[in-house]
Design a protein around this nucleic acid. Sequence first.
DNA 1: GCATGTCAAGTTGTG
DNA 2: CACAACTTGACATGC
Length: 310
Amino acid sequence: MLRFGLCCIFREEPIRFRATTAKALLSLDRRARLAKLSRLAMENASSLLAALEAVRRLGFGAFRVLSPLLPRYTHPEVGYRLEDLPGGDAITAKLREAAAFRALHDLRLSFHPDQFVVLSSPRPEVVERSLAELEYQGLMAELVGAETITLHGGGGYGDKGQALARWRKHFAELSPGVRGRLALENDDVTYTVRDLLPACEALGVPLVYDVHHHRCNPDGLSVAEATALAAATWREAGREPWFHVSSPRNGWGGNAPKPHADYLDPSDFPTEWLGLDATVDVEAKAKELAVARLMKELGAEPWMGKGRGG
DNA sequence: GCATGTCAAGTTGTG
DNA sequence: CACAACTTGACATGC
């Protein structure tokens, strides 16, 4: 069956993740800085557990975790380690509590590094920071039991072949824990499913198929073909396929940017996906309300975990 | 309280 | 050239 996933935050559920800025941290001495970071990290760890409880209650089967659970962790000036934080053990324990809840209810967790993480960049300093950020996200993924870190190909720099060769080279520099979790996702301006498949197959990296991006940035493959090719990269690894879907706020016409709408238009949901064993992250501004509405409109069953009769 | 300006980071495309 | 878009507005400050 299909399981539906929520991305990062909630519209109505009273669950919030906290952040801070490097500038604010730099105005504090080391002791006050670490105390503040510790407080925020503990709040975020508790919020993650609350988020997973809400996800389960709402009948969803997946959750995308907001990357900065530990705010500014890899910042060159205010970066730190978990062991540096007062109460670091309690933070770790709370994250492991979330991991246990995830496992008990068979929820699938992912991370999605933001736009600054670019393994295809020709600039060494960009790649270096990207590798550090991915190692941080790998550490978080390990702690909370997240299966996947979903990354885009990055920039094309006028030569996508060369850029992807750089991506593959830097992929090899990551730790095994990150390599084993990394997935590639087609994006809306540069890399299509057709572009990414050779790298995915060569590296054993599964392909997250975003049908919204595919419609913005087509490659001659039909939705059915792209679905089958992407799904094969997951099944090769004995894993369940992972897809993304969203609707454009201002319709599909024209070349203007296509920000996400509040809710899914059910006609944007590929009929090719119905009946598959797969995970579908719903990217919509109305968050859990949008996931719930889409499931209702599709007649989808709530996720109860594999082998739990759901 | 509330309005407003700011926030680490990359790359691309539009107007 | 400025700005929006991207997984996401939240935080810090000043009134």
